[in-house]
Design a protein around this nucleic acid. Structure first.
Lengths: 214, 214
DNA sequence: TGCAATTGAATGAATACTCATTCATTTATT
DNA sequence: AATAAATGAATGAGTATTCATTCAATTGCA
């Protein structure tokens, strides 16, 4: 899946460890960026945090830039999987799935201060790094698509008129991002439940028959 | 006004130039951060951009960190003044003023890609720099206060029930921040008018008698 | 008013330091 | 034994900061 293996599908210990190391370094990068910030994160910080040696980053990722890029991809993929998992284990209706996505966005696993800090660090740098921008944009568009489709279904099935799915969906995802920023900057003023309620409040106005005003 | 002058209130050429230089450097910093990103902005970049010599930053700001800090303060102050100006020249009702604030948020002067890039750069770094976090938090709280008061007035005068001013206000400011992020990351998918309409859409649901669904 | 004396803004070469990257060597796996 | 992974000292490119020097503006004095 990762690399063509001409022999059996079984991966040797070598190859398995290789992926383990990559993950170990990516996790260390997340911790370091969350603690020290993007601009201040050095290779020494990351490898020390991971308990590995200095040269390993260049061995596994070729350069610091690539490590950062892979870290962003990792976060992105992790979030996307969580979205699909949340929708799969939600109820059958579009409203159920949308509610599950909002729950997820403010659940401890996604809405962790360390990870939020990293997201905003990357967003801050994305403007000047085309690769980051590309990864983020692709991410955004996929998410937007999912939410728009759910909204469209609610509108059609629920008989809502004078309302565009894209508008509700864009608004919701912007709202969530903005609430994350609040939680990052002034966590005392914005606990997760509060943020969740504000999102549901938004949906309860857009789709009053499907979401109760919290 | 700025400094006690025992003689006449007139400022000499010296003092005037000093402030001019500071502003010149701050503006250059904004341009450089917007173009190159926070992490890649060097003192040489900034001074070259400003057409001044290398040593001037340390002369006027003592250090690079302080320059960044002052730049953030500058942006912060500029935005706040713009808010007050917009409210002052708006109609008399709270709804008029709230509408004016939303207009402002998506007007070219505030909603300029270069400035947005700088805001997100600072937000990205704020987590790991207490001073930035402080400046941003103070800023946020002031803005939140203004918007909450306006919402409170609309609720009271308009006779809205079952709705909390703080919820609407927190939601609105989060929404605006999130829309800014969209405009920064995928400007083609989110023109300012669209973002403005999404914000008004939000308000039209919260206060249906005061904001028309766009 | 004219003429030093003084101030402090501005410069940019030199300095000191940080940090990504390299690579010869060691350690582990097959 | 052969191959790959891991190490970390050494390297050198890049960068913030310092500071001796220059020079324009201001002040004090006649």
């Amino acid at each position: 899946m990762k690399k063509d293996n001409k022999n059996t599908g079984a991966r040797g210990k070598r190859e398995k460890n290789k992926e383990l190391r990559r993950l170990q370094l990516i996790r260390a990068t997340i911790r370091s960026v969350a603690r020290r910030g993007f601009a201040e994160t050095t290779m020494a910080d990351v490898t020390r945090e991971a308990g590995l040696s200095l040269g390993l980053i260049n061995l596994h990722f070729k350069s610091k830039d690539r490590l950062m890029e892979e870290t962003l991809r990792h976060l992105s993929g992790e979030y996307e999987s969580a979205c699909f998992a949340a929708m799969a284990s939600a109820g059958p209706t579009a409203a159920d799935k949308l509610r599950a996505l909002v729950e997820l966005d403010f659940s401890p696993r996604v809405c962790d201060r360390r990870k939020l800090a990293v997201w905003f660090s990357f967003w801050g740098e994305a403007r000047s790094r085309p690769t980051y921008q590309q990864i983020c944009a692709r991410n955004d568009r996929r998410y937007e698509k999912i939410v728009t489709d759910l909204c469209q279904e609610i509108i059609e099935v629920g008989g809502y008129a004078g309302i565009r799915a894209a508008t509700v969906a864009n608004g919701l995802s912007a709202l969530v991002n903005g609430l994350w920023l609040d939680m990052l900057m002034t966590p005392d003023d914005m606990p997760p439940e509060n943020a969740r309620d504000i999102s549901v409040f938004y949906l309860s106005h857009a789709f009053p028959n499907h979401f109760a005003n919290p």
